[in-house]
């Protein structure tokens, strides 16, 4: 009998499963690892002449010094501000929405609401941003309607400001925040909330000490999915911010597309990656500290209760 079973087992291993991953691995090595590695390599070089884009005959860190100049830093701090504010706003708007969707909406309607969230997600984001440009334009219908209703005295002056850029990025990346939050909240067993309620915790306490800690993976995924693409995005800012919407992505792009200085552009791209990584690490550390404080305090409370009941 044992030899009977051995034959199909051997047949089952005819193609080792690990082998099936190698085409993807080769593809990524060729078109992801190699090109990104090349960016790091270029960033150590220089632009030798007017008509050449890069040279690595002398390795130097000068491009990084050049990249960290005033223009770049101004634009960078502006981008970082929009990135952090935009991500925070997405969380503030998305969290109550995802909670409503996962807990309050009746199950048979949930699919419909979820589809409604997905539809804008799959519409061209540039077109949606242009839609906002139409809404915000001083001669647009919204501006005229509000003027004729007497709500505002002068035409809209929001287009081509930082506020418009912020509106645009919050709008464009909000679904990326809602989806992981929804998945995380949806997985939490409803009986945990009931138990917390039965044990005398009020709604706010249940939300803060039961639901929110359990939704942590979703919050982390949402923050990543919004913050990273937002930091590299310059299209939204170009449509809604005009000249004021100068994001760092635009600077990097112009080094490659206009100035033809690949060495400097590469150094800027590397700085962008490093700053994004550092911001994520800082946020993760802050999150860990918050969690520790919360659990630490609760443990002390529990100890106090135990002593109280023993006395």
């Amino acid at each position: 009998m044992t030899s009977d079973r051995r034959v199909p087992r051997a047949a089952r291993r005819a193609v080792p499963p690990g082998l099936l991953a190698t085409p993807a691995l080769a593809w990524l090595a060729l078109f992801f690892v190699a090109p990104v590695g090349l960016v790091f390599w270029y960033s150590l070089g220089r632009k030798p002449g007017l008509y050449q884009t890069h040279a690595n005959d002398v390795l130097t860190l000068d491009r990084y010094r050049e990249a960290l100049g005033d223009t770049f830093l101004t634009s960078f701090s502006g981008t970082l501000r929009i990135g952090v504010t935009g991500t925070a706003l997405c969380l503030a708007i998305g969290l109550p929405f995802a909670y409503w969707l996962a807990v309050k909406v009746r199950p048979h309607r949930r699919f419909v609401v979820l589809a409604l969230v997905l539809v804008p997600f799959w519409t061209n984001f540039l077109i949606r941003t242009i839609g906002w440009q139409v809404v915000l334009s001083p001669e647009g219908f919204a501006s005229r309607a509000m003027q004729s209703l007497g709500l505002i005295d002068a035409p809209f002056s929001m287009l081509f400001t930082r506020g418009a850029v912020l509106l645009g990025v919050v709008y464009n990346y909000l679904p990326m925040m809602i989806l992981p939050l929804y998945v995380a909240l949806d997985r939490i067993d409803g009986s945990l909330r009931e138990a917390s309620n039965d044990l005398g915790a009020n709604r706010w306490r249940t939300a803060l000490q039961v639901t929110l800690p359990l939704a942590r993976p979703g919050i982390a995924a949402g923050l990543l999915l919004v913050f990273i693409p937002l930091m590299g995005d310059y299209v939204t800012a170009a449509v809604l911010g005009g000249a004021r919407g100068n994001m760092v992505g635009q600077l990097v792009a112009s080094q490659f597309q206009q100035a033809q200085n690949w060495a400097l552009g590469s150094a800027m791209a590397v700085v962008l990656i490093v700053v994004i990584a550092l911001t994520i690490l800082a946020t993760a550390a802050a999150g860990a500290v918050c969690t520790w404080l919360l659990t630490h305090r609760r443990r002390r409370e529990l100890a106090g209760i135990a002593e109280g009941s023993a006395a």
């Binding site: 078109f31 992801f32 190699a34 090109p35 990104v36 090349l38 960016v39 270029y42 884009t53 890069h54 990543l224 990273i228 693409p229 930091m231 590299g232 995005d233 310059y234 992505g249 990097v252 792009a253 490659f256 690949w262 552009g265 590469s266 791209a269 962008l272 990656i273 994004i276």
Partner: peptide, 14 residues
């Protein structure tokens, strides 16, 4: 998690 701008500037020279 790589921002599009980084993939773009990496692929063009490649």
């Amino acid at each position: 998690v790589t921002p599009e701008i980084v993939s773009g500037v990496a692929l063009l020279p490649w």
